[in-house]
Nucleic acid binder design. Structure first.
Lengths: 142, 142
DNA sequence: TTTGGTGCAAAAAGTTTGCATCCTT
DNA sequence: AAGGATGCAAACTTTTTGCACCAAA
């Protein structure tokens, strides 16, 4: 499990200053397993600060995504972020379309795919499975 | 290969009126194999019209994506569209990161994946391979 | 003390909406 | 003729930028 220390250390390693805002930001992602929009993050941050500015949150989200502390995705045409998972092996994700929690899926399509056609050189890939997690599956249809 | 008639017919089937704007829009995608931003589409449309409004293009892009005439994707944080491919079998795409052309890849990860963990129910999925196509591979590095 | 980070403000870019008019059906 | 589509304008949201001041190292 990822801890605050891990995130703070990574910030330092990148020569970042560890500000209160960044620590709070990190904590928010630590206690949230699902995706959050910048707006949602800002609102949660606001509970801890008075004069918080949105662009600081925004800048930090971008930066944190850049160094791999968090992951950015576009769900329903909306940009969202979640904590970068601790899983060490290469893996992909199951994403619940209802609660937006994510689950590791240690399986990579490229290990099972045929050779690339058209003399295409693969550099990276994205594989995501959308569906309902155990909890959301059991709830009555909304 | 998809033709203008096919697209026009599909519009009619959905009770749409076939306006010049929509025909031009369709033609633009027919002659472009790569992804286009709404802005790029608008500019190309502008070559055919004088008093063209951006929101008409925008509205039509959204609508055309809704009925599956074109496909929407988010590349580099930017929303883009391309023609929905004619391939009948379920398939995925190789996307060239340089020219953004796409190539069919008739292979589905879910056919080779182990059972979903965590009692997760898969509803849909996304699998895209990013890389360099034959042509871009041969060009000198930019 | 130094320099990067933050807050504030404002601009830029992207997306959506209302409405009178036009044009496909 | 009727109603959906367009053009125009404006609002709204999201993302980006400049700069003075503050604070982490």
């Amino acid at each position: 499990m990822v801890r605050l220390d891990d995130l703070v250390r990574k910030m330092s390693e990148h020569g970042w200053r560890v500000t209160d805002q960044r620590k709070t930001l990190a904590n928010i992602f630590l206690e949230t397993q699902s995706y959050l929009t910048p707006r949602e993050v800002y609102e949660r941050m606001g509970r801890h600060y008075n004069g918080l500015s949105y662009d600081t949150v925004y800048r930090n989200l971008r930066s944190m995504a850049e160094i791999g502390l968090i992951e950015q995705a576009t769900l329903d045409d909306v940009v969202k972020f979640k904590l970068h998972c601790a899983e060490h092996h290469h893996h992909h994700h199951l994403i619940c379309v209802k609660c937006e929690k994510t689950f590791s899926f240690v399986f990579c399509p490229l290990d099972h795919a045929p050779p690339m056609p058209d003399q295409f050189t693969a550099l990276s890939h994205k594989f995501e499975v959308y569906g309902l997690c155990k909890d959301c599956n059991q709830e009555p249809a909304s």
